[in-house]
Amino acid sequence: MRNSAVTRRAFVSTGFAAVTGTFLAAEEQVIAPLGIPLHQEPLAFDFDALEPHLDAATLKLHYNRHHGDILEKLTETLQPLNLKVGNLSVLMPNIPRLVLPINPRKTVVRMGGPPLTLSAESQRDLRQYGGAHINHTAFWRFLAPAGSGPAGPEGKVAAAIVSEFGGFNEFKTAFTEAAMKHFGSGWAFLVYRPDGRLVITTMKNEDNPLMTDFVKPEEQGRFILCLDLWEHSYYLKYRNDRRKYIEAWWNVVNWNFVSRAHTIVTLKGRV
């Protein structure tokens, strides 16, 4: 079954955002490299293209229902703040204050009014739904059909993984075990830190390494690989066997995109 270019939920969400003024006009939607737009990107593959490793039924439910619902709630959260958002990632370090960066790309624009002081409820919702949209958008980008690209990291990111972890197999083992030890729902990340090191970390719920006010300093940075650990990512096929899900996921990692992400964060420092 082919994934449609625009799902019903994606159309409703982006349409709602445009009407309320929280979404940039088409000619202004210049997203920074690896940035996260305020819409649901079409998948780069068919729902059944990751079989037998990740099943079509789970992917369809995950993408259309879970991610689609998150985006609708995020749009509802941003609407009363009177923001135009072109790259959601730049909001993550600023949730408690919402101090908007001066950015020539105009990835976030405040449309008049007094300085923002977010309520505790708005902070919670932006952290939850904004984090969830960023994490899910990245998760889809880091997937590709088995055999459609390299079976492991190549080039500079491969050298960085060897330097940090001793080898690709050692990295896979460390990443898998970190994901297995994570209790409950959340995400596993490979993070490029500001000091240039690569670190593996997991975070609860919908947090990610961009949230500098909520995560430990040693876990902050730009992630160049992520894995969804919520049960809705694998329960239909693997039930509660997270290890089998992770083992299957390694077969469909988009290593071309990992390389691209690593190149961008090392050269330009962009999300």
Rank of each mutant, 00 (worst) to 15 (best):
W230K: 08
P101S: 11
F189L: 00
V157G: 03
E164N: 02
A160K: 12
D48N: 15
N135T: 10
P150D: 10
A49R: 07
F183M: 06
N135C: 07
R222D: 06
A26I: 07
A57L: 10
R9G: 02
R243M: 05
G130W: 10
D213E: 14
A188E: 00
G131T: 11
G184S: 03
E27H: 09
G21F: 05
F142N: 06
A5S: 11
T77W: 05
F142G: 05
P101A: 12
K237V: 03
V252Y: 03
A146R: 05
K172F: 00
A132K: 12
G35T: 07
N3S: 11
Q123R: 15
L225Y: 09
H133D: 15
M203N: 00
T14A: 03
V108I: 14
V258N: 03
D207R: 09
A56Y: 01
K84T: 13
P96A: 09
K73W: 11
G147C: 11
A44I: 04
A159V: 05
L78D: 13
T202R: 01
N135L: 04
P101M: 08
F139Q: 10
L225S: 00
V253C: 03
N135G: 09
I95D: 05
H182Y: 05
F23W: 06
F214N: 09
N205C: 00
I102C: 04
I70C: 07
F45G: 12
F168V: 10
F257Y: 15
H53V: 03
P80K: 06
I264H: 09
T107F: 10
L50T: 11
S259W: 01
A56E: 15
